[in-house]
Simulated scan of single mutants.
Amino acid sequence: MRRRQHQEHENHERWLVSYADFITLLFAFFVVMYSISSVNEGKYKVLSDTLVGVFNQPQRAIDPIPIGENLPRNVSQLDGAGAAESADGSAAGSSSDPLQDITAAMQAAFGDLIEAGDLELRGNELWIEIELNSGLLFPSGDALPSDAAFGLLDRIAGILAPYQNPVHVEGFTDNIPIRSRAYPTNWELSAARAATVVRMLANGGVDPGRLAAVGYGEFRPVADNTTVAGRRANRRVVLLVSRFLDNRHQAFTGGDQNVDDMRRARNQAGTGPAE
């Protein structure tokens, strides 16, 4: 005898599930719309006042900031010699430019080294760079000056001594590693060479308060270290003579930002060792 197939009971209330979902979503939609339409008047007023204040501020800079190699030409008033103003406003003392005087004296005293490429002069209205090949001053891998270095640096000190411009001495090496007991890396070697030059300039009459020494090691090359000529060019000592007086350790009076401006201008000009 065949069994009777049980017929499933048809559910006529399935629409309630979809309807409940729809009502839930509709409720959530109205909640979101209500929350968006409610504005916090206090926060709105603060935001509005802030925006109005920002856009109504007076212009802070009148002249555009110089970019690239266009350097300011009105630097005579910031002369490193610090020409004093008399009571009637006229400048007292010498009107000569110290950087021009130093450059002319270096060219006259070391024309043979300049022609041979062992000494280079670079610069602009803000600074001059006196670049010396390390072979003129030190034996290979050492920071003890050679016999010829004493006479050379004594002549340079005689040129720089009459002026009050700061002199930053920078030491550079090639990328050949050095692992001596005195100089574990090229950092120590370059810094020691810069310090030696500073000490010799001070002994030659340059005010020690104007001097500073820094070593860059192998990380500021100006030539390809894969060639002999490139490595020779990278082994150098640079004397950076700034137009501005170094007032970093004096109380700030809101005046010119001389040292920072000089460094920024040097980076923008792209002359000398890159920084």
Rank of each mutant, 00 (worst) to 15 (best):
E115F: 05
D101H: 05
A223E: 04
I65E: 06
P66N: 08
Q7A: 12
V39W: 01
T271D: 15
E69I: 15
I178F: 02
I130T: 11
P58V: 02
L160V: 12
L132W: 00
P66S: 08
G255E: 08
F22R: 02
V259N: 13
A274R: 08
F22M: 06
Q268P: 03
R266H: 13
R193C: 05
P72E: 01
Q164P: 02
V167T: 10
Y183M: 10
A91M: 12
S96W: 15
P221W: 09
L121D: 05
S96F: 15
D224C: 03
E125F: 10
T271W: 13
W127G: 01
E69H: 15
R243A: 05
G230K: 06
S146A: 15
A143T: 01
P66C: 08
N247Q: 10
E129T: 08
D79H: 11
A269I: 06
R220S: 11
I102Q: 11
N258Y: 09
S146P: 00
N11F: 11
R231I: 03
T271S: 15
D207I: 06
E8Y: 11
P64A: 05
Y19K: 11
G89F: 02
L25N: 15
E188V: 09
Q77V: 13
G93Y: 03
D79P: 14
N70D: 09
G205F: 02
Q59R: 09
N234A: 02
T226P: 00
F29C: 13
G204P: 06
A148L: 07
L16H: 07
G111D: 07
F29A: 15
Q100K: 13
A191D: 14
L160S: 05
H249T: 07
P208L: 08
P184I: 03
F138M: 03
Q7L: 11
E120P: 00
A105N: 07
F252C: 14
K45P: 00
F22P: 01
L152F: 08
R2L: 12
V214A: 14
P221S: 04
G80T: 01
D112M: 07
G135K: 00
Y44P: 00
R4P: 04
G93W: 03
L78I: 07
